[in-house]
Design a protein around this nucleic acid. Structure first.
Lengths: 250, 250
DNA sequence: AGATGAGACAAGTATAGTACAAGTGAGCGC
DNA sequence: GCGCTCACTTGTACTATACTTGTCTCATCT
């Protein structure tokens, strides 16, 4: 029994969180009533309430007196967190994550990278890092990253091996645009990922921007198709949770 | 057990919206009176009124005291089914979209579909539709869809060919979870999509839920890898809904 | 001392049902 | 034509009920 679940309300909160994040209750949807939940989880209303209040503190749900508990509209950050840290997902599942750096050095940016990072021809020196990520000793991704050199001053080969770029960069991440496509494994990627040449792979490109909109990171990921897949939550337009009797007065 | 029902007025509003958008009431046409509707839907006039007022807030209908409720002259096109229907993106880009239905019929759900749609072994009849989507005459997707049969009563082969499932289903879409993976083209898909066998394809599964959380649609998409890729926006602070879209690459 | 269980009560919401005021339009008598 | 009635409509306001959350009190257990 883990320390997190020492208390019943903690355990119930975790169970509810899983159900909500699994999409059983879309944003705006009412949860079962406190009395229903207390019956379902065989706990008192006090305990169920503490669990719900804990989830409200996390911003996952909200409530209105006489109405009920409903899922808050939030899912964007959730999605970013899940997509942004594939390594984190694996490590939280107990896998031993290892980053093996193959190339590390400064060079002039290839044309595609230069345009994506909005660099000029004269000022196009970038840090180029190519590495393989392994989970439990098995390769699961080949990652290539380009960083403008003025942001890469603090980076060393050791830092890149130990931490993610999002942690190592001296800027605050504002967002990213990612493309996901299918391709056939190139001979070099096939060798790195221990898969046959031309077998299907997921190929992703991601352009990450700082909060001021400046592109700070261009990365390419290649995942073996048989081992990986993306999960995307597609929230629908928010349902109104305003009281029906509410009306604007002049 | 208490699967708490969604609010009646919202359910009635959904039913009326479908009837209006299906053209049962042309623009300017009077709807049945509130008392008629309350008899027809076996609900009180207060409830019917709330449903109508919800539709008025959406700009779909309007009312005049002593006259009645009528369909608005220029009904605001509902932004509801915005869930990245690829067809919509293509048609908005000017491509001629065509849906060619290959299979259409009722059958028992395969085990995986049954569990995803949360059906029981006794109650597992589903509508199974397989089709090919074409843009400008070129195939760009093979789509297979399963719908619980109680939701498929209104669907016909013609409806499926003319409209998207999101428009045709008599429920309001609440959200969806989508997985994206890479695979090798099967012989049948290769033939349908006019690509070589074993060439890389994007394979997506999507479970769509109604606003009350009930799974209403399970679909599988296969896209040729060389022509298509997904674009995912990962904003961190913005509240904007970030739709996931599929983009054709040249 | 804090987590939990059980309950009572207040306040808010959705719905059903009823009643009445006010607006609309068709049909009537003139 | 005009004015009127009358049936029907929406707009609004209540009551009542069942259900919900919000907030207490008190007891029990570790």
């Amino acid at each position: 029994m883990s320390a997190r679940e020492e208390f019943r309300y903690r355990r119930i909160a975790d169970l509810l969180r899983v159900r909500i994040e699994a999409g059983e209750f879309p944003a705006g949807r009412l949860l079962p009533s406190e009395s229903d939940l207390s019956k379902a989880y065989d706990a008192s209303r006090v305990t169920v309430r503490k669990a719900l209040e804990a989830l409200r503190d996390d911003g996952l749900i909200d409530s209105r007196q006489g109405f009920g508990w409903f899922v808050a509209a939030m899912p964007v950050r959730q999605t970013l967190a899940r997509l942004a840290t594939i390594e984190g997902q694996l490590s939280s599942l107990g896998s031993a994550v290892e980053r093996r750096v193959l190339d590390f050095g400064f060079q002039r940016a290839p044309a595609r990278v230069r345009s994506q990072l909005e660099l000029t021809v004269g000022d196009d020196r970038v840090l180029h890092v190519r590495r393989v990520n392994l989970a439990d000793g098995e390769p699961f991704a080949r990652v290539t990253v380009w960083v403008p050199d003025d942001l890469a001053a603090e980076l060393s080969r050791g830092v890149v091996e130990r931490s993610t770029f999002y942690e190592a960069l001296p800027v605050t991440i504002g967002g990213a645009t990612q493309t996901i496509g299918a391709a056939a494994a190139s001979p070099s990627d096939a060798a790195l990922l221990a898969i046959p040449v031309d077998s299907p792979v997921l190929r992703c490109e991601r352009l990450t921007r700082a909060t001021d909109g400046r592109p700070v990171l261009f990365s390419e990921f290649v995942f073996p198709g048989h081992r990986t897949e993306f999960v995307v939550e597609l929230p629908q337009a928010e349902v109104s949770v305003a009281p029906t009797g509410l009306r604007l007065v002049e």
